[in-house]
Design a binder for these strands. Structure first.
Ligand code: MN
Ligand code: MN
Ligand code: ZN
Ligand code: ZN
Lengths: 126, 126
DNA sequence: TTGCAATCGCAACTAAGTTGCGTTTAAATT
DNA sequence: AATTTAAACGCAACTTAGTTGCGATTGCAA
């Protein structure tokens, strides 16, 4: 796949991710752009942008898909495999710049892991 | 909620989890019991059994709900918060009896975490 | 400009899970 | 053992995130 054309829709979607550094759920993005882009297009674009290494995705504790900007990824490989954080009070989701080590497990080969940390964000703690 | 009556359906569902110690997805369980229990009942039972501390659940990398037996949990609290493992080759899912420590995160209060480890299981490694 | 494949919009579809409601049944009470 | 009744169940219809097929539109290279 991969994005080939710089269409209006691509700009609109990427612009939403430029506004701040938080993650955005596909559901929320579809709503935000409802009057400008068809939901099918939004989903297809998210897939493509992920494919291109511009966005990465993960699932929250309800199985909902969230997307966030990649920092050092490319079309060939996502390098930014990291944990994500969801605030149980306000619902914001973002990327954690920390490394959590998965120990060796007997008789198993660990390839990667998906970690969702739940708790309270800085704003909700005040 | 909580299971009150020892019905035929309860036995059938619990029996599936007694067969071995692996986790079972709700989807798979509905299929397995298709000729014996209505899917609505299966989902309602899984909810109840989870509520009662007999089963716990988690999501796999596709957002699909899986259930597994609890060991030391009760109606009032799930004590068995642990990582889960999914084999990327054969698809089996089970509980990991290991503890993975989430470090302190500045300006955030970590309450709990959901960890899915992906890799190859013992059988698929041979 | 023109050509045309990439992209898009729309409607219909898929699949996991839920809800409402009338019927059945476990099990306590007579 | 028969009666009672709320818990549990089955069924059909619904919800919702995401997908598919296809004809119309559009970015962009020639
Ligand atoms: Mn991230
Ligand atoms: Mn488990
Ligand atoms: Zn918050
Ligand atoms: Zn395996």
């Amino acid at each position: 796949m991969g994005v080939i054309r710089k269409t209006q829709s691509v700009s609109l979607v990427l612009n939403e991710f430029e506004k701040n550094s938080k993650a955005i759920s596909a559901i929320e993005l579809v709503k935000r752009l409802d009057d400008k882009i068809n939901k099918t297009t939004v989903y297809r674009l998210l897939d493509k942008l992920e494919d291109d290494g511009l966005l990465h995705y993960f699932l929250d504790s309800n199985g909902v898909k969230w997307f966030a900007k990649c920092k050092i990824c490319s079309k060939s490989k996502h390098h930014d495999v990291h944990p994500h954080f969801q605030c149980t009070d306000c619902g914001i989701v973002d990327c954690l710049e920390i490394k959590i080590t998965i120990p060796e497990i007997p008789n198993r080969k660990v390839v990667n892991s998906q970690i969702l940390v739940l708790g309270q964000c800085d704003l909700c703690l005040q």
